[in-house]
Amino acid sequence: MASSYSPPNDRILWVALLLATSLMSAYAGNFYDEFDITWGDGRGKVLNNGELLTLSLDQYSGSGFQSKNEYLFGKIDMQLKLVPGNSAGTVTAYYLRSQESAWDEIDFEFLGNLSGDPYILHTNVFTQGKGNREQQFYLWFDPTADFHTYSILWNPRHILFSVDTTPIREFKNSESIGVPFPKNQPLRIHSSLWNADDWATRGGLVKTDWSQAPFTASYRNFSANACVWSSGKSSCSSNSTSTADNGWLTQELDSTGHERIKWVQQNYMIYNYCTDSKRFPQGLPPECSSSTSS
């Protein structure tokens, strides 16, 4: 697609990305220590001494895992390699969610495809049990051919979704105009692989081909630079927490970040709730007019 901006692949940014990737690998969490397989009757597996986790789906069940820790703000990175081939009908979900009935949630969902068609990356933000803030994207690479890093930066100012360090979506704190923002409930990291062929691919027109099962998604290089919630307190409130280690708590998008988001949304966004006036005949949500959700 034609554009005056291209992804961050010039030499300087490429070197910076290599350095960032190596640092992330060096501090990657061990899946045995950081997560529990929560369902799937053996379809979720931790491998390679805790360095790799896989989820599988067949006609009988999917599978899932969740983090041992809860977090109140953080920068969460995970590398995923999605289900290859004909993954129509499947959904790989990777998200943060609180436990309360009026929950907060920050979503990445990857909607499966027919072989040769692109995956759809579906994002959403729930506050106090209310969502309906979907934005969807195609990716500029094949997410099944190799691992790619999907990141959520969540601080008191905004939520930022990024892919391989390229920001794709920002949801700003706009409580000043009455839009609730996730800031009081600790969130746990979840992921699952499940069958959603009633809606996932072309609105449910394409069903899961179980002859292709088992479907498998893979995870590695988890990293959480985050405030761990324990006994009603955040680790970031400790005086021993270095401000230098938590610069992400006040991080905002710079001009380059805004340019990257604009490039992604101009070239790869396929749905934005903030432009769907048919869905909101009484008027778009207030955050849309204030550019809260970029």
Results as ranks from 00 to 15, higher is better:
105 E>Q: 02
260 R>K: 14
226 A>V: 15
227 C>I: 05
64 G>T: 13
197 D>K: 06
84 P>A: 11
258 H>S: 12
169 R>C: 08
269 M>R: 15
171 F>A: 06
66 Q>I: 08
252 E>R: 11
86 N>C: 10
270 I>E: 03
107 D>K: 03
166 T>R: 07
110 F>S: 09
198 D>I: 11
72 L>R: 00
135 Q>K: 14
85 G>A: 07
200 A>L: 11
69 N>K: 10
60 Y>W: 10
259 E>P: 05
29 G>V: 09
101 S>P: 04
72 L>S: 00
206 V>W: 03
255 S>R: 09
76 I>S: 03
29 G>A: 13
211 S>P: 03
208 T>P: 03
239 N>P: 02
156 P>K: 00
46 V>Y: 04
40 G>V: 14
264 V>D: 03
208 T>Y: 06
199 W>R: 03
54 T>A: 02
174 S>F: 06
109 E>D: 09
106 I>Q: 01
241 T>C: 10
199 W>H: 11
90 T>V: 12
261 I>Q: 10
271 Y>P: 02
139 L>Y: 08
59 Q>F: 02
218 S>M: 13
51 E>F: 07
189 I>E: 07
166 T>C: 11
291 S>A: 14
168 I>Q: 02
5 Y>C: 11
34 E>I: 14
27 Y>D: 06
135 Q>M: 15
277 S>M: 11
257 G>F: 02
36 D>Y: 07
283 G>A: 09
31 F>H: 01
155 N>H: 01
207 K>F: 04
269 M>F: 10
157 R>P: 01
264 V>L: 14
290 S>A: 15
8 P>R: 15
227 C>P: 00
202 R>F: 12
101 S>T: 14
197 D>Q: 05
113 N>H: 13
287 E>N: 07
57 L>A: 08
261 I>W: 05
42 G>I: 13
233 K>Y: 10
122 H>F: 15
135 Q>Y: 05
92 T>L: 05
225 N>H: 03
132 N>L: 12
144 T>R: 00
279 R>N: 08
225 N>A: 12
2 A>E: 09
64 G>R: 01
258 H>K: 14
93 A>W: 01
51 E>D: 14
179 V>Y: 08
43 R>H: 14
55 L>Y: 02
223 S>Y: 09
9 N>H: 14
213 A>C: 03
112 G>W: 07
175 E>V: 15
260 R>Y: 04
38 T>Y: 06
